[in-house]
Write a protein that binds this DNA or RNA. Structure first.
Lengths: 399, 399
DNA sequence: CGTGATTAGTTCGATGAGTGAACTTAAGTC
DNA sequence: GACTTAAGTTCACTCATCGAACTAATCACG
């Protein structure tokens, strides 16, 4: 999940580049431009935008069309000269996104245009890892069967825990799993393509950063909070999800809100998760766990004192915890996901203004806060995007 | 602080690359390899390491030698065939590092081998920005005069405050400066080369990340704490200092240790700076400010109750604040700089173990803590490295 | 309805950077 | 002193991009 090179100083090249890298790079540039365009660009548009010649753009596009990475469409919208053939991300390339959650398993097949081609949601419980993953693999194969000749290019898996580079899930408290070789167990689903495993918060953040594959969302730098039973998070910088040394960046759930607060399962005290996790909010608000998401804001607006207390708790804890995060990573926009998506406008503005008071640079650049756009299955869709990201980064491997 | 035009190859390309970019890139690869090598490599060594042909390596090296970016040295150490000419970073290329601190101005001229060619330290006070910067420019010109035919390739300036991309210092509380165009005022020092302005903590962290220009230090991922009157910090990831959206990453001084703690000048409460800044420690320990650095550890070891209290305060505050940072950015190594460099081994181990208890991934990968290697002028030397970083990143511009 | 203007896309020789193999240079070895 | 070894150099070749000329398809205007 480590995507190289956020804002950086002196990068160093580990190996020399050859002429073929040049072509690889320009193929990627074309694909990226096609994905981020608002209207299907022509070969000539691409040549202008990327400052290459029409000759080069034409040749590269032809290769990508042959590989079905981009599709040609009619773009007859009048105008002077020869009508252009529009280019769109190919529908023949799909990525598979899987998600293991505490109570369900999700599968999404998404094409390069971001359209969901196939999906599957099944309930699950906190059982043995092998059993759960085998069930997930079964569902994934079912979805894969319905792809009808499209090319599967990779599999992404979102899991609620810390993942290491080799695709092992080190620890997932809410599943009770330790050291599970997720990538290995699910390898058969991907066939000869790699299975990319990452934290569900990172996958959801990827979807938030690019609502369509390769297409940047409104913000390119933000802190993403994924709140459910556990509270996770991710940092998006320059449109890329940044992972730490061991893929464990963005563990917002264990930022300290108050050192004298309640003990947390992680061994620390007063962690954010103890204030805004579903369990904590259910207890304070008196709502059943599954109704916290929708019920909280409504209850508070209706004046229910327990819901008001819960909302105040969320506001306080988030503003304290996120202020530290914003100061440390220097990113002043925050996206609230999971059950926090449903917070009402007034609460969000209240979090924002309290953050402003605590953030050093806010006088210069005010903090921004917004709810996430993704739905409650963002992690699975994001995982599919993660699978497709390999094609976007190195399309040469698929032509 | 975000380096212009240095997008790396993995990520989506904004523009196409041409054949000349290929050469630029490989020149940079050669320079990087020469800088990070333990013994001066030959052209053949470089060809092997970078997997290019001897022909290519030879041609590119010749260009770099002509431009004095690398020097040829005799490496006659016996052996069979034709003796190799060793290659070292050029001594003819120097970067100028300036630092504005609360009580002094520093100038360092450093060559590509990391040797200090010229330096100047003068006392200063918190006066008008124009006056102080003019004095600094004067000192810098004096140092520049002593360069004797070497090529000055850039100027870096370390300042104690938040800096925006355009080289303006937005706010420097301990200098009482607001919105000062540092790059503009010092432009004359750099001649036709840009003046790179950044936070002193970032500059010091750069020196910690690369003790010699282009040569990585022992750790490539760490959180760097720069403690003085103010407490700053920086995040180093993959050997690079990461800047936030607005160059304001790593503001560790304003991570919240205790929301019910003392009010901080930043508008928040219980910030780290209120516990480990020089003023706070001087007050608790009873030591005069200028003696806090050396006196604190000694006093604590000697059993002085006030020093013991101060050390306990440092230990507690750092372990709480850094735990959040480590969890959020997923980097589990910490370097303590500024007056914290002088903490005794036992205190550092105590911070480390308390961090371990609060960090989610510590069971998998224990937290590491060490004092910084740089001296109290790290920011100025780091600023010189910053100036040289442009040559390392794009040597083609200098050949 | 035909001619010209205009823009998209294609073809083809030129350019420049890396490749590979042969050649030259400067040692050490027997 | 002839042979071996390895570093460095030379030169013809490859390949991706460039530039310019060419072809294709549509609109505008008389």
């Amino acid at each position: 999940m480590v995507e190289p090179g956020s804002t950086s100083w002196g990068e160093s090249a580990p190996v020399a580049v050859r002429q073929s890298s040049l072509r690889e790079r320009n193929l990627a540039a074309i694909v990226a431009a096609v994905c981020r365009a608002d209207v299907p660009p022509s070969r000539a548009d691409l040549a202008t935008e990327l400052s290459m010649t029409r000759a080069t753009a034409g040749r590269l596009v032809d290769e990508l069309v042959a590989a079905r990475v981009v599709d040609e469409v009619d773009r007859s919208q009048g105008g002077r000269g020869r009508p252009a053939k529009g280019l769109l991300p190919g529908t023949g390339i799909v990525g598979l996104g899987l998600a293991v959650e505490t109570d369900r398993l999700l599968v999404r097949a998404v094409d390069l245009r971001g359209r969901v081609i196939g999906q599957r949601d099944v309930p699950s419980g906190p059982r043995d890892a092998e059993l759960v993953l085998d069930a997930l693999a079964h569902e994934a194969r079912e979805v894969r069967r319905g792809l009808q000749g499209r090319r599967l290019v990779g599999v992404g898996v979102a899991v609620p825990g810390i993942v290491t580079d080799d695709g092992r899930l080190r620890r997932a408290p809410n599943l009770g799993w330790n050291d599970v070789d997720v990538a290995g167990i699910l390898a058969s689903v991907g066939g000869r393509y790699p299975v990319q495993v990452a934290n569900e918060a990172d996958m959801a953040a990827l979807l938030e950063a690019q609502p369509r594959p390769g297409r940047p969302g409104p913000w390119s730098d933000f802190v993403h909070v994924s709140a459910a039973v556990g509270v996770g998070g991710a940092i998006v910088s320059g449109g890329r999800v940044v992972a730490g040394e061991h893929g464990a960046a963005g563990e917002l759930g264990h930022v300290c809100v108050d050192p004298s607060g309640p003990a947390c399962g992680c061994g620390s005290t007063g962690c954010l998760e103890q204030y805004v996790g579903i369990r904590a909010l259910a207890e304070v608000s008196g709502l059943p766990r599954e109704r916290v998401a929708e019920g909280l804001a409504a209850g508070a607006v209706a004046g229910d004192p327990r819901c008001l207390a819960a909302v105040e708790q969320v506001t306080h804890a988030l503003s304290v915890a996120l202020a530290s995060v914003v100061n440390v990573v220097g990113i002043s926009s925050v996206v609230l996901g999971g059950h926090l998506t449903a917070l009402d406008v007034a609460t969000i503005e209240s979090i924002r203004s309290r953050l402003d008071a605590r953030v050093l640079g806010s006088r210069w650049k005010p903090v921004q806060v917004r709810p996430a756009r993704g739905d409650q299955t963002a992690a699975a869709t994001g995982a599919a995007h993660r699978a497709l990201a390999d094609v976007l980064a190195r399309p040469a491997a698929w032509v």
